[in-house]
Amino acid sequence: MEPFSGTTSVYVFGAGGHGKVVLDVLLSENKYVVKGILDDGPKSDTLFGIPVKKNFNRQKLQARNCIVAIGDNAIRKKIVTTLDTNFIMTIHPNAIVSKFAKIGPGTQIMAAAVVNPDAVIGNHCIINTGAIVEHDCRVENYVHVAPNACLGGNVTVGEKTLIGIGATVIPNVTIGKNVTVGAGSLVLQDIPDNAVVVGAPAKIIKYQDLN
């Protein structure tokens, strides 16, 4: 389950709020030397004492270790597709991740999160602070499970979907791609692609633009 042993150099792409959390995880693991933080529009020159670089050559990142620390799913995917690099995953020391779970590269699992046996989490996902992914879940690429959200057993979540803060999805539900589940919502049935759902029980209020 652990991506590396020993000390490993890594670059972090993203100097915003989510970047701070990812950086904190990397520093807490005591496995990484953060060589630099990359951001196209940084608000400061350093983050936790580490230089933030605006003008950088993406080609120089080839074969380097990198993690994209952007909270927005669509933007995270867009940046990932511009980088030819070795994406690492990172797991906070206080997270509980079953040795029988599968975690894809680029995925970030934050403090107090729980990932239970036979869960499969794709690439470049965020399992945020205190979130729970129960047994046999299937979480596709670029999904964000926000703080304190809970996926019951055998839930499937499609690519680029956001499960909002404190939302709950009951077992055996399938949620489509590019869905937004509002904060605190209770999902009791399958949700189609591109839907925005809110409430308890969650109901569709609109569909998102695909562009």
Rank of each mutant, 00 (worst) to 15 (best):
H92A: 00
G158Y: 05
V143S: 09
V115M: 13
H135P: 09
Q62N: 15
D118Y: 15
T90D: 00
C125T: 06
V187C: 12
T8K: 01
D84T: 11
V155E: 13
D39F: 14
L23K: 02
K53Y: 12
Q59V: 09
I88M: 08
N94L: 11
R64H: 14
K35V: 10
I165C: 08
V197N: 00
P147F: 07
P147E: 05
G122D: 09
C125I: 07
K53W: 09
K99Y: 07
V169Q: 10
I79M: 05
Q108Y: 12
A111M: 02
K53N: 00
I132L: 14
N65P: 00
I121Y: 05
K60L: 14
F48C: 06
Q189I: 00
I126T: 07
N30T: 01
T46E: 15
D84C: 11
L162C: 08
A202P: 15
K43M: 14
L186T: 15
P192H: 02
E140L: 03
I121D: 02
A69S: 10
A111E: 01
T46Y: 15
P51N: 08
T161S: 15
S185K: 11
I67W: 14
T174M: 08
S9K: 14
G152S: 07
T85H: 09
C66P: 01
P201E: 05
E159V: 10
T156F: 13
I204F: 11
D190W: 01
T180A: 10
I170P: 13
L38P: 04
V143H: 12
L27G: 01
P42F: 11
A113K: 02
Y207C: 02
H92N: 00
C66A: 04
V114M: 14
T82R: 03
T180R: 11
G158T: 04
T90L: 00
G49Y: 14
T8C: 03
G152K: 04
K53L: 10
H18W: 12
C66H: 04
C137I: 11
V173M: 04
P201M: 07
V196P: 05
A63G: 13
I126K: 08
N154L: 02
L162M: 14
N57M: 03
T90Y: 03
H124A: 03
K31I: 01
V21T: 00
G184E: 09
D24C: 04
T46A: 11
S98Q: 08
K78T: 11
V34T: 08
V196T: 06
K102L: 10
S98D: 10
P147H: 06
G17I: 01
K177N: 06
G182V: 03
P201L: 06
V33N: 15
T81A: 13
G19T: 06
N211L: 11
N211T: 13
F56K: 03
G106Y: 09
H144L: 11
G71Y: 09
M1S: 01
A200F: 07
T7Q: 14
K60R: 12
G36W: 13
I67N: 08
F100L: 15
D136T: 04
V169I: 15
V115L: 12
I103H: 01
